[in-house]
């Protein structure tokens, strides 16, 4: 008996969509190239200028420090929130309520203007002697104000993300750890958090990318991050659009790098969870490239007599 050839489903709609997209893309590319008001030469001129690169550095540094503050404080807040102590859990609840309930821009401006409220910051016994005192304007530099504003706000969000992650871990894990004589904090650090990471990382990656862009708010407190640097140039030269394009391109590059980083971190914490590791981007690229002319391995064309085809 002759094997019957099975014909896979055709998808003419896909080809049609691709054609439409290509036409639209061509029109867009044409606009980009032919419209002189984009001033691509100016974009090229400033893309790697010192001011812009310094701004990029500041943006990265700010994102890193603010996220570090946010993650560390957020995890602590989440652990407090879930602690059996009603005191700790209420403190954590109040913190999240306050910092999530007011806009981050308002918090930034508030920290920057802290001197108006407390001209001096001092450490000492309440109503008693003072050990240490500093003028607020000297202590709260634009950078400190930015870290306080962004980091403390971020902690409130990371606390909720971490709480969701911690609660996603099976109760049996806690019992097993306790039965082995592990104490609460050790259990949290060694058993719960590593498993919670799988749930925490994707939204935390989102938060990091969000933070990278939110740092542009900091231009309001005259901190020379990327947007402020671009503004400082175009306020002088009036080349507003090209400089905003420069800033946007840099933001895109940075978020792309973060996206790739997130993928590898997720892969690391997925250990012991997925039966096989998902391929890295490089592995996928290589596989697609080298199997370009033969059918890809995960979708073998099945034929009726073949028994090996459909089984993976």
């Amino acid at each position: 008996m002759k094997p019957i050839k099975a014909v896979p489903l055709r998808h003419p709609g896909r080809w049609l969509t691709v054609a439409v997209i290509l036409v639209l893309a061509a029109m867009f590319a044409n606009a980009l190239v032919s419209n002189p008001l984009f001033q691509w030469d100016v974009v090229g001129q400033y893309f790697t200028s010192e001011t812009i690169l310094k701004g990029v550095g500041q943006t990265l540094y700010l994102t890193f420090v603010a996220m570090a503050v946010g993650i560390v404080l957020g995890v602590i807040l989440a652990v407090m929130r879930l602690s059996p102590s009603p005191v700790l859990s209420t403190i954590s609840w109040a913190y999240i309520w306050f910092f999530r309930g007011t806009p981050v821009l308002v918090q930034l401006i508030f920290w920057f203007n802290l001197a108006a409220l407390f001209p001096e910051l001092s450490i000492g016994v309440p109503f008693g002697p003072t050990f240490f005192s500093v003028e607020t304007n000297a202590a709260i530099t634009p950078f400190i104000a930015a870290i306080l504003g962004l980091g403390l706000n971020e902690a409130a969000y990371m606390a909720e993300i971490s709480r969701a992650g911690i609660q996603s871990v099976n109760d049996g894990q806690v019992e097993a750890a306790h039965a082995l004589g592990m104490r609460r904090l050790l259990t949290m650090r060694r058993i719960i958090l590593p498993q919670a990471m799988r749930v925490i990382i994707p939204p935390a990656g989102n938060e990091t990318i969000g933070m990278l862009k939110t740092t542009s708010l900091v231009s309001i407190v005259t901190l020379p991050e990327l947007l402020y640097s671009a503004q400082s140039i175009y306020s002088r030269t009036f080349e507003t659009i090209p400089l905003l394009i420069v800033a946007s391109l840099w933001y895109l590059i940075m978020t792309s790098v973060l996206t790739v980083g997130q993928y590898y971190i997720e892969r690391h914490f997925g250990k012991g969870n997925a039966r096989t590791m998902p391929p890295t981007a490089w592995q996928r690229l290589r596989r697609n490239f080298f199997t370009f002319h033969s059918p890809p391995p995960e979708a073998p064309a099945p034929s009726v007599t073949s028994s090996s085809g459909g089984i993976r």
């Binding site: 049996g172 097993a176 750890a177 082995l180 004589g181 050790l186 498993q195 250990k271 012991g272 969870n273």
Partner: peptide, 30 residues
């Protein structure tokens, strides 16, 4: 509790550790 071992119906092994690491965890950390 260190003196009392317990085995659960649902095993409750730590999924992020290998079999050997599961066994070694408590004696080292506790």
């Amino acid at each position: 509790r260190q003196e009392i071992g317990m085995v659960f119906q649902s095993f409750n092994l730590f999924p992020h550790m290998t079999a050997l690491a599961n066994i070694m965890e408590a004696p080292i950390r506790v």
